[in-house]
C-alpha cells in the first residue's frame, strides 16, 4: 500500500448526510430527525451529520414516493451533490411506491430516476434500521473512494 493511500485511510473524511423530502408524509423524516438528534441513537458517532447545502453532502437520504410536483426539484438538488455520493432510500415509498404506488401524482419509485445504493424498508423504519442503512451507506461510500475492499 502506498503512503498516500495509507494517509488517506487514516484521515478518512466524515460522510455528511443530506436529506431530501420527495413528497414524504413526514413519518420517515421524524425518524431521521430522531436518529440524528436523540442521544440514544446518535448518528454522529459515525461522523455523520446533517448539512444544509447539498454541495457539502456525501450520503443523501431520500424519503417519499417522488411526487410530480417535487420531481424536478429533487433531481436538481440530487445532481448538485458531488460525486462520489451514496443514495439511500428511506421507507417503502421511495423503494417501491408503497401505499401510494400507481397514484395519479406519483412518479416514483425513485429508482426510475436515480441510481439508489441502499434501501431501508419500513413504514417508517425504526431509528436502529436507519442507523444500519447509514452504516451500510458509509461502507459503500468508502468503497467508492477506494479506501475499503
Amino acid at each position: 500500500m502506498s503512503l498516500d493511500k495509507t494517509l488517506k485511510k487514516l484521515s478518512v473524511r466524515s460522510p455528511w448526510l443530506f436529506r431530501i423530502n420527495a413528497g414524504s408524509c413526514n413519518g420517515c423524516d421524524v425518524e431521521l430527525a430522531t436518529t440524528a438528534c436523540i442521544p440514544r441513537y446518535d448518528v454522529e458517532r459515525f461522523g455523520c451529520r446533517y448539512c444544509g447545502s447539498p454541495r457539502h453532502a456525501d450520503v443523501v437520504l431520500i424519503t417519499g414516493p417522488l411526487t410530480t410536483r417535487v420531481r424536478d426539484r429533487v433531481l436538481r438538488v440530487w445532481h448538485e451533490i458531488p460525486e462520489p455520493k451514496v443514495t439511500v432510500a428511506v421507507g417503502i415509498c421511495p423503494i417501491s411506491g408503497g401505499v401510494f404506488r400507481e397514484g395519479y401524482s406519483i412518479e416514483g419509485p425513485i429508482a426510475r430516476y436515480l441510481p439508489v445504493d441502499v434501501n431501508v424498508p419500513g413504514c417508517p423504519p425504526r431509528p436502529q434500521a436507519i442507523l444500519e442503512g447509514v452504516v451500510l451507506a458509509r461502507s459503500i461510500w468508502l468503497k467508492k473512494l477506494g479506501l475499503e475492499e
Binding site: A111, N119, E132
Partner: peptide, 14 residues
C-alpha cells in the same frame, strides 16, 4: 425482525 437495510441488488429478493 426489523433488520431491513440492504443494498440495491437485493431489492427484489426480499
Amino acid at each position: 425482525d426489523w433488520h431491513g437495510a440492504h443494498p440495491e441488488k437485493e431489492k427484489f429478493s426480499r
